[in-house]
Write a protein that binds this DNA or RNA. Structure first.
Length: 657
DNA sequence: AAAAAAT
């Protein structure tokens, strides 16, 4: 895919057809690079090619971006035309070109940039740009635009999130945003974003990263982890400048079009990457750091142009990044900071070969020459392996679940048979008060259901849209945009929207189909009740959801929610149903997951021989079969799985299955 | 079982 595809502006599909690369050439994502990885003996050990010359001296100002002017991508959002949440304020505003180019003497003059909110790194110093009110409005929003209402996290509920840091030499957490350790420019940006107090993750991650340490954090979205890595990385970057660019081999030909980012953030979904990028733009305001974003499904030529204009902190999905590396347009040789966000999810999605290639098989500096931060909701064995390979002497941070103890969200569970779900949903939507301008997010399990349900709602004259992985990227972004702005205050979504997305004003989450994983449930309901607001969550429960019932009841109890009697009954039955039912080797390490999302397996003790909180031994909670005090009631049939669980109309004493 | 992800 590195052949002559670069030319032209036609869509990629057209180009493929022209080259005779029809659908037959398609390789499913999870199989991509497999051969390459297998046939590349240097993957895990051979760092030879890149490791050689790297100077530690502060780099000179980079001629590349200085002479190109770093402003234009700012005026355009991340990469040209893709409509995203952040684009509202500026769309009609004229480009500032006339203003800044007029003096025509030196486009790298900091004075000129100062007018536009961009700083530069020059002669080993950070020259901060001046304020730009228009840009501030675009980045930090204004009160009249609900889609950009600030989402600063300042609320007391975050204070009771338990955090545990383990490892050698854990620094004291900071208690507030101050300089030091944070750069004054960053502090100003944090102020513009209306963040007043660091979240628990941030309290720890700031000094950890500032102290040059690697970090493995078990934390979920909503804990403020984006700030947790952006703040210390940007702060250090502001102070230290970029890494010296490597010698351009031969040098003969003009300036390279290759981008050399200093920081790389990998995340599993396009929307998440896009959201991280929007945050990065805020906190990089007025600094020399130019954030950039690349992901699939969007015009690659626009992204290429965008990264040419500046690419210091790059947020990326793995596939598109590999593509750009193959095209020779991005080099990782200058990386000082690597962040893997939602690492467990990335592995679930089959990204491991691509991630290993990016981190170990290209030109990224080794573990000792970069700082690496990994975030993951869980800490199973494959994540531990990744941590072992990517991190050095890391500090392990375990952050409790945000939503579980929150009473900001009223959780209702209703018993609804599949056939009744549609009409019950209509009832719910109809009963929502007209003054309630909040947004309703409806989760379903399949893409097909997402389509069908949104069609159904629209057929009933309800302003609905849908988001799932089979929609085009444009449709996905449009759906998110119309949802955010309230034009379609109902959005039907699959798992693509379950985690990470921060959408203000979601007042109601409906689990039309319950997930089978309690953590997914927590993530979903966490789309509401954010930033100190209250929210409502309604779940449709029926016999198909028995697999989640025990965790669900436990969660509801912890969150002080009303638990319907019938649900308790079902949970009780389930607890001595088939032993192997949960399927994951005795269930998940509840104790670990609840109190702190995971445990530092290096600490030894508790949690089973492997130290893995999940799998293997069951690190607390409900390992193994639980024969209950009720005694006697046999489990259904033999083994538990599949047919066993719901295989028949089990008439029990409770009578309802 | 489904979803997501360079084209």
């Amino acid at each position: 895919m590195t052949n002559g595809l670069v030319n032209g502006t036609t869509g990629m599909e057209t180009q493929f057809e022209a080259l005779g690369l029809g659908r037959s050439a398609y390789v499913p994502p999870h199989l991509r690079n497999v051969q390459r990885a297998a046939s590349n003996p240097s993957l895990s050990d051979g760092r030879s090619s890149w490791a050689a010359p790297r100077t530690a001296t502060p780099p000179p100002a980079r001629g590349g971006f200085e002479s190109r002017g770093g402003y234009s991508d700012r005026g355009r959002g991340a990469f040209g035309g893709a409509p995203r949440g952040g684009m509202n304020g500026w769309a009609g505003a004229p480009a500032p070109a006339a203003n800044w180019s007029a003096p025509a003497s030196r486009t790298d003059s900091p004075v000129q940039r100062e007018s536009f909110g961009y700083g530069v790194w020059k002669d080993g110093k950070h020259i901060t740009g001046g304020r730009n009110i228009r840009m501030e409005k675009e980045l930090f929003g204004d009160a009249n635009d609900p889609s950009k209402q600030h989402t600063g996290i300042n609320f007391e509920k975050y204070d009771d999130i338990p955090v545990e840091a383990t490892g050698a030499g854990v620094p004291e957490p900071v208690l507030s945003f101050t300089s030091p350790p944070l750069d004054p420019v960053l502090l100003e940006n944090i102020g513009y974003a209306m963040y007043t107090t660091p979240t628990p993750v941030q309290k720890y991650s700031i000094p950890i990263v500032a102290g040059g340490r690697d970090l493995m954090a078990c934390a979920q979205t909503g804990s403020g982890k984006t700030g947790g890595f952006l703040f210390p990385i940007l702060s250090a970057s502001f102070a230290q400048g970029p890494r010296a660019p490597p010698e351009q081999g031969g040098g003969g030909y003009g300036r390279s079009r290759k981008a050399y980012p200093t920081a790389l953030i990998l995340a599993p979904t396009r929307e998440l990457v896009s959201q991280i990028h929007d945050e990065a733009r805020k906190f990089a305001y007025r600094s020399w750091v130019r954030p950039a974003v690349v992901y699939g499904g969007a015009d690659i030529n626009q992204q290429l142009r965008s990264i040419e204009r500046g690419c210091d902190l790059l947020s990326a999905t793995p596939g598109r990044l590999v593509d750009l590396i193959e095209r020779g347009r991005i080099s990782l040789a200058n990386i000082k900071y690597l962040v893997l966000d939602e690492a467990d999810r990335m592995l679930d999605m089959g990204f491991e070969p691509q991630i290993r290639r990016i981190v170990q098989g290209e030109d990224m500096p080794g573990t000792t020459e970069r700082q690496t931060l990994m975030f993951s909701a869980t800490f199973p064995r494959d994540i531990q392996m990744l941590a072992k390979d990517f991190l050095k002497d890391y500090i392990f941070l375990s952050v409790g679940r945000v939503g579980s103890t929150s009473e900001n969200i009223t959780q209702k569970i209703e018993y609804v048979e599949d056939n009744d779900k549609r009409s019950v949903l209509l009832d719910i939507l109809a009963s929502q008060s007209k003054e309630d301008l909040g947004l309703t997010l409806v989760f379903v399990e399949t893409k097909r259901m997402a389509d069908m349900l949104s069609d159904f709602l629209m057929g009933n004259n309800l302003p609905a849209t849908s988001i799932h992985g089979d929609r085009t990227q444009r449709e996905r972004e449009m759906a998110l945009q119309t949802f955010r702005t309230g034009r379609t205050p109902i959005m039907v979504a699959t798992a693509v929207a379950a985690r990470g997305l921060d959408i203000p004003n979601v007042t109601h989450v409906v689990n039309y189909d319950l997930p089978s994983d309690i953590d997914d449930y927590v993530h979903r309901i966490g789309r509401t009740g954010r930033a100190g607001n209250t929210g409502v969550s309604t779940a449709f429960f029926n016999r198909g959801n028995k697999n989640i019932v025990k965790d669900l009841v436990e969660l509801l109890r912890e969150a002080n929610q009303d638990i319907p009697g019938w649900l308790e009954t079902v949970a009780h039955e389930a607890s001595f149903g088939s032993g192997g039912f949960r399927g994951r080797g005795g269930g998940r390490g509840r104790g670990a997951s609840r109190g702190g999302a995971g445990r530092d397996y290096r600490q030894g003790g508790g949690g089973g021989g492997s130290g893995a909180p999940y799998g293997g031994g069951g690190g607390g909670g409900y390992g193994g079969n639980r024969s209950t005090s009720m005694g006697g009631m046999p489990s259904y049939g033999g083994g538990g799985y599949g047919g066993g669980a719901y295989g028949g109309p089990q008439a029990t004493t409770q009578g309802w299955w």
